[in-house]
Amino acid sequence: MTENNPILPGFPEKESADLLRISNIKLVKKDEYFISEGQIPRKFAIVLSGSFRYYYVNEKGDEFTKGFILKNAILSAYSAMVQRSPSLFNIQALEPAQILEVNYQSWLQLRSSNGFWDRFLIRALEKGYFAKEKRERELLLLDAASRYQIFLSEFPGLDKKVKLHIIASYIGIQPESLSRIRKKLGN
């Protein structure tokens, strides 16, 4: 039986209640970090509203945006969380957001008691893997203008919410180059 739960739409009633029992709804301010580089993550979250970015910073202070996370997606520095090692990237709110924060150890206990959570994890990992594979292909084979157009189609309206340098770092170019592309496309 599926409950029409506004927090976790599509989750079965029992699993939704179990997850909510070990979770906290949390408000995140714009520019606040969910995970910071160097921090050992002990939590993950489901985005209920708002948007986030994953990004790296090199030794010169240059930022490289790895990805954007929107509503109903999972926020996690997964490898670091599983390996109990420091995160290599930051997860930052791009706007005010609401998340369902889950303690990883509590979730492991829940997962061991119900096979639903293994299936949930596999689907989440597959989704992440598919996105990573697609992004790698785009970065290796497509020009910057094509990557920008893909960004616009995959994240409608996000270009109006985030700074130009963040979009440029996601596309893999300098902000000046993105300005030229936007001008050429009439943006």
Rank of each mutant, 00 (worst) to 15 (best):
I69N: 07
S51P: 08
S51I: 05
P41Y: 08
A131W: 11
G186M: 08
A131S: 15
S16R: 12
L164Q: 12
A145Q: 09
L70I: 04
V102A: 01
I166W: 11
D31L: 15
E37G: 07
E37F: 13
K183W: 03
L20M: 14
I74W: 10
G10N: 08
E95S: 02
E176L: 03
G186P: 06
E95M: 04
S76Q: 14
A144R: 03
E154I: 01
S153N: 02
P12R: 03
K66Q: 12
F64M: 07
I25P: 03
I167T: 07
I40K: 09
N4K: 05
N187M: 09
K184P: 06
S177G: 10
S76V: 12
A17L: 11
I7C: 01
E95G: 01
R137F: 15
W107T: 10
D62F: 05
E176T: 11
E13C: 08
Y55V: 07
R84P: 11
I173Q: 06
P12H: 08
K161C: 00
K132G: 02
L100V: 07
E3P: 02
R137K: 15
W117D: 13
A77P: 09
Y33L: 10
I150K: 02
S76C: 14
E133M: 15
L178P: 05
I91D: 08
N114H: 04
I40N: 07
V102D: 08
K71Q: 11
A131I: 15
P41K: 03
K60N: 12
Q109S: 05
A145P: 11
R42T: 14
I35W: 09
R111L: 14
G67A: 02
Q92E: 13
R182L: 00
A77E: 15
D62K: 11
E63A: 07
S169R: 04
E63W: 03
L19R: 13
P86Q: 10
Y170D: 01
K29T: 07
L70R: 11
Q105A: 13
V162P: 03
K26S: 13
Y104D: 12
S153I: 01
I69M: 00
Y56L: 06
N114V: 09
P96L: 05
F68K: 02
E32W: 09
P96Q: 12
R135F: 00
Y56I: 08
E37P: 08
F155P: 06
P96F: 05
L88W: 10
E154V: 00
I91G: 00
N72R: 10
L152Y: 04
R137C: 15
G38K: 06
F120T: 15
R111H: 14
E138Y: 10
E63H: 04
K161V: 05
W117N: 07
I150L: 06
Y148I: 03
I22C: 12
L88H: 08
G186I: 02
L108W: 07
K184L: 00
L152D: 03
A93R: 02
I40L: 15
Y170G: 09
S49N: 10
K184V: 06
K160N: 11
M81Q: 04
I25G: 01
N90V: 07
G38C: 11
L158P: 05
S23P: 13
K30Q: 09
M1C: 04
K66I: 14
E136W: 08
E126Q: 03
Y56V: 12
P96T: 05
K184Q: 08
L158N: 13
R111C: 14
